[in-house]
């Protein structure tokens, strides 16, 4: 999720639309004894607090060499029980990967997870000496609320100062809201356009468009619930800049804007 901090369209006027929880094992601790168990326990808790999204829907189809033969087995199981397989895959990823992410679209679920983590899970990590860093991504107001509720004090911030340079070449703000949902930049502006037009014509639903647009994302970090809402707005007025979008990608300062 390296750049969820550059997402467009989150608006303090509509809080709680998304809080992304990212967990990472610091590089120098990846081989620590017990760290994989701590990740597995974390994966279980992340799922228990009802994330809207964890892993991309097409994750099963990707070639993840680290999963080895487990991937073949899970692919086979996936045909029978797709949803359950996503849980299993998430846990398999937790065993191998140093990163886990999940999207929450209800503030109480994200805060509930944090409250939960602060208890036994953190105590166990302390006891065993297994450090796993936890990062929240979303509106600072939402994060602050969760921190206050759980008595957690922020350690480090990552702020976005927006976009600079040839902003005249950028697609409109509505499209940017969807395009920036993939931190690796794999969502195409013209795909967004095409899907918005199809929603407008009634050929597909906004939810189907949201599922389609999320497909290139390999991290499973696209918030499909918010994407569907954006598609509904785009379908009404494709070139409109939305109130929630904040001024269309203004750089700070004055030059080359």
């Amino acid at each position: 999720m390296s750049h969820t901090s550059q997402r467009r369209g989150l608006d303090p006027a509509t809080p709680g639309e998304e809080i992304i929880v990212l967990a990472m094992i610091p590089k120098q601790h990846r081989e620590d004894e017990g760290i994989r168990d701590a990740m597995k326990a974390l994966a279980q808790k992340m799922i228990a607090h009802k994330p809207h999204q964890w892993l991309s829907h097409n994750f099963i189809a990707l070639d993840i060499p680290q999963l080895g033969s487990k991937q073949t087995l899970l692919r086979w199981l996936h045909r029978v029980r797709p949803e359950a397989t996503r849980d299993m895959l998430f846990k398999a990823v937790a065993e191998k990967s140093s990163v886990l992410t999940a999207i929450y679209t209800r503030e109480e679920d994200a805060c509930g997870l944090l409250r939960d983590l602060k208890g036994f899970w953190l105590e166990e990590n302390r006891r065993k000496g297994t450090p796993i860093s936890i990062v929240l991504s979303g509106l600072f107001g939402d994060i602050d609320k969760c921190c206050r509720q759980t008595g957690i004090r922020p350690h480090t911030y990552l702020h976005s100062l927006g976009v600079r340079g040839r902003v005249d070449r950028l697609p409109n703000e509505g499209k940017l809201e969807l395009v920036t949902m993939c931190g690796h930049g794999l969502i195409a502006g013209q795909r967004v356009q095409l899907l918005a037009e199809r929603v407008e014509k009634g050929e597909i639903t906004a939810e189907q468009a949201a599922e389609d647009v999320a497909r290139p994302c390999v991290c499973g970090i696209v918030n499909q619930e918010r994407a569907a809402r954006i598609f509904k707005r785009l379908a009404v007025s494709p070139s409109r800049s939305f109130p929630g979008a904040r001024a269309a990608a203004p750089p700070y300062g004055t030059s080359a804007g």
Partner: peptide, 15 residues
């Protein structure tokens, strides 16, 4: 200075 209302926060749980 323009800045987005969203971003990331490390919670310091591993410190």
């Amino acid at each position: 200075v323009f800045r987005l209302p969203n971003g990331k926060v490390n919670l310091g749980l591993a410190q």
